[in-house]
């Protein structure tokens, strides 16, 4: 199993990119590229990552990359992989690096199609919970109550009125060979998942929690702290779906409270106790579902 020390020194995603200081996407992609290695082709939809890493004629990726549009990451990556195989380049990884809007919203149709066809790609959803590239608008992946520029804190309505869309569950419904959520605050777990995704065949999905200090109105040095808190509070569970079975990779130990997590971020500053309660209810509901699946799996395998 790969750990931090084993990562190569060479940066396939180079310095000089123009991501905001403390960008969670940049640090995740940088390490992902180290695991995937040189024999990789990257597809980028329209997102922050494209703009801060591929501003013509400069480019942070040392490997080939293609950008076409916003909503077609999964199908474009799948086509690249098929074309490479046809050219005898079987060994090349193809990875799509899409944001949460490009995945949960506008890219969902292509994502679902590619997952159903089991396209042989790694699809990474870098989840910073809003459309950051266009200036912090709400996406389907924005959490309940969060301020964004399209869910402002108004006199009548404060923040987003809906909960975050569960894309992991949607991918499980597609029965893909591999799907996982990961947080950079848990490096061993994240690297293990990168490696698994690299070595498996078929459609592989990763949802990575990527802090956006700018969009979340949080201090840039708190990028990893927030990624840790999100897991510890249970708001972002670390999960893995493999061979039709769900595994919980980490059980929150309550090192942080939800209130602490919300407090660091300006996007939750307006939260009332009722809003905090609503988030808690949602977390409990999701964990109930996770435990139900876990228990069910135990019963079934025990009965065999």
């Amino acid at each position: 199993m790969i750990n931090i020390k084993d990562l190569p020194d060479e940066e396939l995603f180079t310095a000089g990119h123009t991501a905001c200081p403390g960008c969670g996407v940049a640090l995740v992609v940088r390490n992902l590229m180290k695991v995937l290695g040189k024999d990789t082709v990257v597809y980028l939809p329209a997102n922050c990552l494209l703009v801060f890493s591929a501003t013509y004629p400069l480019d942070a990726f040392k490997v080939p990359y293609l950008h076409l549009l916003f909503e077609n990451s999964a199908v474009a990556a799948g086509a690249i992989r098929r074309a490479l195989k046809r050219l005898g380049k079987e060994h090349v990884n193809v990875v799509a690096l899409a944001g949460d809007g490009g995945t949960a919203d506008i890219g969902m149709q292509a994502l679902s199609g590619a997952a159903e066809r089991n396209e042989d790609i790694i699809y990474v959803m870098v989840d910073n919970e809003a459309y950051m590239n266009t200036g912090i608008q709400r996406s389907g992946s924005t959490p309940f109550g969060a301020w964004t520029t399209t869910t402002p804190v108004g006199k009548k309505i404060m923040g987003k009125t809906e909960h975050k869309k569960d894309v992991m569950k949607i991918m499980m419904a597609h029965d893909v060979p591999y799907a996982a959520t990961a947080s950079p605050a848990f490096p061993a777990d994240m690297l293990k998942k990168f490696e698994k995704a690299k070595n498996k065949e078929g459609f592989r999905f990763l949802q990575i929690y990527t802090t956006c200090p700018t969009g979340w109105r949080a201090p840039s040095e708190k990028t990893i702290t927030l990624a840790k808190m999100a897991v510890e509070t249970g708001i972002f569970p670390l999960l893995e779906y493999e061979n039709g079975l769900l595994t919980v990779n980490y059980r929150p130990k309550g090192k942080y409270t939800l209130e602490e997590y919300l407090k660091i971020q300006g996007r939750f500053r307006h939260f009332t106790p009722e809003m905090v309660e609503e988030v808690k209810r949602w977390i409990d509901m999701r964990w109930k579902w996770i435990r139900t699946i876990e228990e069910g799996q135990k019963v079934v395998s025990g009965g065999e």
């Binding site: 180079t14 310095a15 000089g16 990119h17 123009t18 890493s53 013509y56 004629p57 400069l58 480019d59 942070a60 990726f61 040392k62 490997v63 080939p64 990359y65």
Partner: peptide
Amino acid sequence: LATRSMETDAGLVGPGSFVENKT
């Protein structure tokens, strides 16, 4: 604009060339 890594009078362009930008 399909661009390989190359040296220009303004420095490196193409894959891996963002190192030109001293952030």
